[in-house]
Computed example of a mutant assay.
Amino acid sequence: MATRTPLSRSIAAHAVLIAYTVIALFPVFVIVINSFKSRRAIFAEPLAIPTPDTFDLVGYTTVLKQGDFFQYFQNSMVVTCGSLFFVLLFGAMAAFALSEYRFRGNTLMGLYLALGIMIPIRLGTVAILQMMVASGLVNTLTALVLVYTAQGLPLAVFILSEFMKQVSDDLKNAGRIDGLSEYRIFFTLVLPLVRPAMATVAVFTMIPIWNDLWFPLILAPAEEVKTITLGSQVFIGQFVTNWNAVLAALSLAIVPVLVLYLIFSRQLIRGITAGAVK
């Protein structure tokens, strides 16, 4: 039986990633091309490229005129970036503590944090709403950041703790011998080595936050704090839906999250391809 070389495994890994990217981006492609077509063309030929006869920007003009769409974008960016920052920071700190230090209840603490992966946070919507009302945080972006941080921490701790267990103890002990504090060891030695894992956490955490409708509708429905997903619902009616505006809003909403995905996916792909050639 022929043995696969590291080069062939790397090529196979890149081929799989390319195929996955094409499949994943096809719905995005369909949404974008239809956002530039008239309503009649959308239903007549949904997979066709816009032509001079079918090209129409009515969806974008409607989106930009109706509602403060740029404010919705800004709110979504603040909530997403803020939540990612706290998820990665606190998740990495907790994972480092669980993987590095042995104490009574270490395993139980890890299992307790992992329960958040299995139990949906939406089950506690009523209690969360009551808590936010009591704290005076309803209709604020802070409420959304707090909820999404709590939502993303279990997965972050679960993934990062497994990666941090693989970091060499000799490297960390050498840092301690050189007089580095535990904070310096964490930020300068451990974090750079687990960047692919942090990119994985960021990718899997970012998309649900950006696309979520439930908590913005419950905790922050006011006009000045609406997110892009909640703001797009104005074009969806009970009896009539403005598909041109909906597709245009979705196309505009794709751009920021696609940029964030590309930023984090570089580390994600680097980690996958590095593992393929070992």
Rank of each mutant, 00 (worst) to 15 (best):
K172H: 12
V157Q: 08
A48Q: 12
T62K: 02
T227E: 05
I33H: 05
R39N: 13
T51C: 06
L258V: 10
P216V: 09
I117D: 04
F86C: 10
D212H: 01
M93P: 02
D169L: 13
I263P: 06
A174K: 05
V157I: 15
S265L: 10
I218L: 09
R270N: 13
N211G: 05
T54N: 00
I207C: 02
F43C: 11
E223G: 06
L7S: 07
D169R: 15
V28C: 11
S168H: 13
H14P: 05
V240S: 02
A199F: 01
L155M: 13
N34Y: 03
F85T: 11
I185Y: 04
R4Q: 11
V201P: 08
L89Y: 01
F29C: 11
Q233T: 14
M206I: 09
Q238C: 02
S161F: 06
C81M: 14
L25T: 15
K165C: 09
T61M: 01
Q130I: 07
V203P: 02
T188A: 12
L89T: 14
I23K: 02
R104Q: 12
H14D: 13
D68M: 10
A44M: 09
T125M: 11
F264L: 09
A97I: 12
M118V: 15
P192W: 00
N75E: 13
E182F: 00
M206Q: 08
I23F: 12
G124D: 01
A2T: 14
G110S: 15
P50G: 03
P196L: 05
I23S: 09
V201D: 03
I185C: 07
T21V: 10
K37M: 08
F215S: 04
G179W: 04
V63D: 03
L171A: 12
Y72A: 15
I31L: 10
A199N: 01
G59T: 06
I128K: 01
S10H: 13
T80Y: 05
T5R: 00
N106K: 15
A156L: 11
A92T: 10
I23T: 14
K226G: 07
S161C: 10
I49E: 04
M164P: 06
L108P: 05
A248P: 09
I185S: 07
G116P: 09
I31F: 01
A220K: 01
F86R: 02
T229F: 04
V203T: 00
Q233E: 07
L98H: 03
V203D: 02
A94D: 00
A114C: 11
G110Q: 14
D178G: 06
A94I: 09
S76F: 12
L180M: 15
A127K: 08
F36D: 06
A24R: 02
F85L: 15
I159A: 03
T188N: 13
L191S: 04
P50F: 07
W214C: 00
F55P: 03
L230Q: 02
F96A: 08
V22D: 02
F55K: 00
A94Y: 00
A174W: 00
A24H: 10
V201I: 11
V259I: 13
I207K: 04
V58L: 08
R176S: 11
W243K: 06
F96D: 02
A274W: 03
A202E: 01
T142I: 12
A276T: 06
P216Y: 01
L189R: 09
D53I: 08
T62G: 08
N75W: 10
R4K: 12
